[in-house]
Amino acid sequence: MKVLVAVKRVVDYNVKVRVKADGSDVDVANVKMSMNPFDEIAVEEAVRLKEAGKATEIVVVSMGVKQCEETLRTALAMGADRAILVETDTELQPLAVAKLLKAVADKEQPQLLIVGKQAIDDDANQTGQMAAALLGWAQGTFASKVDVAAETVDVTREIDGGLETVKLRLPAVVTADLRLNEPRFIKLPNIMAAKKKPLEKTSPADLGVDVTPRLKTLKVAEPAKRSAGIKVANAAELVAKLKNDAKVL
């Protein structure tokens, strides 16, 4: 079984981003970039499927600027077999990514497409779902457990207040949630070996996909600053404050 995994290059989870002075976007100059954590979980799951003898080949794909190559090398070091970079400087929105994913999937014919449930930069949570719709495949979103059989895959989904297990016919799209697995540390010898693994470059034009943005960002603003706490003298004052100022009682 061939598995296709999509990975996105995003600002590192631990970086505190700043909004640009003109409010047009966040400032990502000179900040640490890493693989989207949910995509890392997706790659890890694919590698575990291969280690368990269920997957035969793992292809990772990323879309965006040239530096996405580093993200793909990371996925290769984790255990993916080969990589595809759809290179473009155009800002990619979820629908464009989903269309590109469909084009790559049409070419590669995987049985399973695993993506992170969302990217931590735009938090759109759309790409996996839209790719499934465009491909006409079944989808198992917010997966916390993936069990692959010959013709089907059981996906345990994290839903409000519990878990839901669905059986999907292959090929299918799975989006990875936080509890699916814990990604491994990458061994240095594997990083060296990953530099020699095949990385193919293509472009939206080569794939015949128009990626022109259809959404316009109007404004980016920082969350409101929390104001400092106050001390109250007694319970009566506390109740009064909660009632009149905080209006929570």
């Binding site: 590192d12 890493s34 693989m35 954590p37 061994k187």
Partner: peptide
């Protein structure tokens, strides 16, 4: 004989 390289700040902190 072996080694790992942290891929994110999170992994760096874990190490």
């Amino acid at each position: 004989v072996d080694g790992v390289l942290a891929q994110s700040q999170q992994q760096a902190r874990a190490l």
